[in-house]
Design a protein around this nucleic acid. Structure first.
Length: 113
DNA sequence: ATTCTGACA
DNA sequence: TGTCAGTA
């Protein structure tokens, strides 16, 4: 299945190239981040670095938008998908709870694009 | 960060 | 008219 390549999690693209590859505007990427749909890595200087996974996530966002969901709904879907992925990673033979104590992220982050 | 516009209900 | 996404 989908192997957890560290490369795919590594932020490599600047915001403008990520936007280009995603077929979106750079501002849109910032908006998505402000809405909690995305959290790209940062360089030491604080500039965004988008990973392949981030690109993949942007694609999913576009698909969900086209499906008629709003950003709040998309955030929920994305969170659940991530949560599900994590469950597959460990997969303990015994499942007692489907509740993952996910740290609710709602941190407003001022940034330098 | 804020404002403005276009789409939609 | 109000909300929402995307933009300037």
């Amino acid at each position: 299945m989908g192997a957890p390549r560290p490369d795919d999690a590594r932020g490599v693209f600047g915001i403008s190239v990520a936007a280009e590859l995603a077929g979106l505007g750079a501002q849109t990427l910032r908006l998505y981040e402000a809405r909690g749909l995305l959290e790209p890595a940062r360089t030491e200087g604080g500039t965004r670095r988008y990973s392949v996974n981030d690109l993949d996530r942007l694609r999913r966002i576009s698909d969900l938008l086209a499906a008629g969901l709003n950003l709040a709904g998309i955030r929920m879907v994305l969170d659940l998908q991530d949560e599900n992925s994590e469950l597959r990673a460990g997969d303990p033979p015994t499942r007692q709870s489907a509740q993952a104590p996910q740290p609710r992220r709602r941190s407003r982050r001022p940034e330098q694009g």
